[in-house]
């Protein structure tokens, strides 16, 4: 089984890496982007009484981080099943 499924595993890995890249772009944009590089520019807008850039740096980015990890865990569970490499049956 191991040798015949090697193409399948490669495709699985590509799907994983592509999902990771998309999520890491979001990760970079909210933290290094909004929280650091664009912080002064964003400060002209306001949200809940905060300057927007300041809010991203001290609050917003953290909320997005939490969401990203759960999105990854959820999407990967689907991808795992799609490629038949899920660890669900291991417990049996």
């Amino acid at each position: 089984m191991k040798t015949t499924s090697s193409d399948n595993n490669k495709a699985y890995w590509r799907a994983n890496v592509s999902l990771l890249s998309k999520l890491l772009v979001v990760w970079f944009v909210v933290s290094f982007g909004c929280g650091i590089i664009l912080v002064d520019w964003l400060d002209q807008f306001s949200l809940f009484g905060f300057k927007l850039g300041f809010w991203f740096a001290q609050q917003g980015a953290i909320y997005v981080f939490v969401a990203l990890i759960f999105i990854y865990a959820w999407r990967m569970k689907i991808i795992d099943r799609q490629f038949g490499v899920s660890d669900d049956e291991d417990e049996a």
Binding site: W27, S31, F54, A57, Q58, I62, F65, L68, I69, Y72
Partner: peptide, 26 residues
């Protein structure tokens, strides 16, 4: 530290939580 340095203290907030994302992903 954040109390004394204000916005510059965000490095700790972003760094320590953002690193968690890398840990979980990679």
């Amino acid at each position: 530290i954040i109390s004394f340095v204000g916005r510059d203290g965000s490095v700790y907030l972003l760094g320590w939580t953002g690193g968690y994302v890398l840990l979980a992903f990679l």
